[in-house]
Design a protein around this nucleic acid. Structure first.
Length: 223
DNA sequence: GTGACGATAATCT
DNA sequence: GATTATCGTCACA
């Protein structure tokens, strides 16, 4: 019996992958694979299908539009994670790009779940206690009697993705070469014919700038 | 299928 | 004190 080698065991992408402008990195991240090893040792992850590029002082939608303590990480070296909390209740995960001194990052918005799907579903719901004690019912991810998990409901949005993969503020600044979080080449750079670019979602500034890169026929996109 | 709404805390002005 | 790179629920069509 030969042991099956999971795709998460592949070598992490090199630092040089991230040391490029955000738009290039974003485009090239499609089809690559994101992996997360939780404290219990389990690995979850899958193939990226939707990302957004964020720039520096020229991009009003970017946190790095102003250089502040929070955005300082986007001005630092490439190849590390930038994780922040939004709306008081969710996390978003980014990949820092460019060289030290130049701000840039790519927001990871959606992926096709491949490994650790049961764990993802467990982290996603069906019921969660919020900080204030309120009980919030979440989108249905599994049937009443242990039916098949709805893989589309797990990582089809930036905050769903972080919840499914157990990504939180502890990972802010983490090296994307592992061991807690890493990216691998997947099946390689996806063909241009599969890629589309649209305006970014949910931003109020620069709302018409095309910077959202998607695998256009994927069923695992947000929305 | 669409649109309004609230949760909730870090960050910045 | 205002804003926010979101999500799930509800009402309605």
């Amino acid at each position: 019996m030969s042991k099956i080698i999971p795709p998460s065991a592949a070598s992490p992408l090199p630092k040089s992958f991230y040391e490029r402008p955000s738009h290039e990195v974003a485009r090239d991240l499609l089809g690559r694979q994101l992996w997360r090893r939780s404290a219990d040792g389990s690995v979850s992850g899958g193939t990226l299908v939707e990302v957004e590029a964020y720039l520096g002082p020229d991009d009003p939608a970017s946190h790095a539009f102003r250089r502040t303590p929070r955005s300082e990480i986007m001005y630092g070296p490439a190849g590390i994670a930038y994780v922040y909390r939004t709306y008081g209740v969710h996390f978003c995960a980014n990949v820092v790009c460019e060289g030290a001194g130049v701000a840039g990052a790519v927001l990871l918005r959606a992926l096709e779940p491949i490994e650790g799907i049961e764990r993802m579903a467990g982290r996603r719901g069906p019921i969660v206690q919020t900080g204030g004690g309120a009980v919030v019912r979440q989108q249905k991810v599994a049937g009443e009697n242990g039916d098949e998990i709805n893989r589309r409901a797990l990582c089809s949005g930036p905050a769903k993705l972080t919840q499914s993969l157990d990504i939180n503020l502890e990972l802010n600044g983490a090296d994307l070469g592992g061991p807690h979080i890493w990216l691998t080449a997947g099946s390689g750079r996806v063909a241009d014919e599969l890629v589309a670019v649209t305006p970014r979602i949910g931003v109020t500034q620069a709302a018409d700038v095309p910077a959202r890169y998607i695998i256009k026929d994927s069923v695992f996109l947000s929305r």
